[in-house]
Simulated assay, not measured.
Amino acid sequence: MIVTTTPTGTIGSQVVDRLIHANEQVRVIVRDPSRLHPTVRDRVEVVPGSHDDPEVVNKAFAGADAVFWLVPADRQAPSAHAAYVDFARPAVEAFVEHGVGHVVGVSALGRGLPVAEHAGYVTATLAMDDLIASRGVNYRALTNPAFMDNTLRSVRAIKTEGRFGSPVAGDRKMPTVATRDIAAAAAGLLLDRDWTGFAEVPLLGPEDLSFNEMAEIISDTLGIPVGYEQTPADSLKDDLLAYGWSEPMAQAMVDMLLAGNNGLNEGVTRTPENTTPTTFRQWCQDVLKPAFDAA
């Protein structure tokens, strides 16, 4: 039995699909079961609730061989530490209590770099990994740079204004990764559990690109001129607050992006083992263009 969290999310839903197609027994923790696709709902066991609830995780992890672990976004949390480390505490205790053999989680690059000490979400995520590993759980943390799929948040601005932006410098080259490649890596580790202990598994796309270069690829794919604009960090924070984010979580997002501008995602050397297959151009053709056409 493999338990998956966030089964209706971008990554979690793809993990569930892969496990189902591998004919695995799957149990999901989901806050709103009605959001599950009917074909998925008919193939999985459903435990309603949130995976920070001790009662829910104890029910879900009973008899489980492995767990896919991903913390959902909580834009109104009192702090990034609360959103990740405190959120995970009930599940970590349940891992131990129920003898869950293997856990695969979604994490971030940056371990060992000074810039990671003040990197908002990333700092909290790495602390969560330490908490899980400290209890002796066999754990693989998939450490990722920014997701290519984050560009989907800018589809409306791209379509109406021909631009997208962030506080990161336009000429700063960084790796990115497609969520479908994260899901593939997670499912592979969940299906083939011939590993023990704690280790990070970096997932880097095939190339480092700057946002200016990404804008050129987006322009080529969509057939319209698209530009990138470096925006002030304070302006982004003000926008997030206006959207209802708590002040600590808005600051944590800004801190993460500024840390990326200072090399947070550049501490791992690309190798054949950690290079994922999807290029940004391919992702734009497969994912961004359909989303743009439908917007």
Score class of each variant (00 low, 15 high):
N261V: 05
Y139V: 09
E229C: 00
V254N: 08
Y84H: 12
W195M: 11
R163G: 02
G101S: 03
D17T: 13
T279A: 02
Y243S: 13
P114D: 09
I182V: 13
T10W: 00
D192L: 04
D238P: 00
H21C: 06
I2N: 09
D130K: 12
V71C: 10
V47I: 15
V44E: 02
D293W: 04
D52R: 14
N265T: 14
D194K: 14
P277Y: 12
I158G: 01
E266H: 09
L190G: 02
A127T: 02
Q14G: 03
V44T: 04
G260D: 07
V3A: 09
V57Q: 04
L36F: 06
N274L: 12
Q76P: 00
R270G: 10
T39D: 15
A141P: 03
R270L: 12
A116V: 09
L70E: 13
D42F: 00
P54F: 10
G223P: 06
M256N: 13
P225G: 10
D42E: 15
A62M: 05
G99M: 10
G267Y: 07
D86C: 07
S210E: 10
P175I: 07
V67P: 06
L131Y: 04
D17N: 08
N265S: 15
L191F: 00
A187D: 01
M214N: 02
A77T: 09
H81L: 00
V47H: 05
F280E: 05
D238C: 08
W69N: 11
V26T: 09
D42R: 11
H51K: 06
V201D: 00
A77M: 09
T143V: 15
G136H: 04
R156S: 14
E93S: 10
A294N: 15
G267W: 08
S246C: 11
I158F: 01
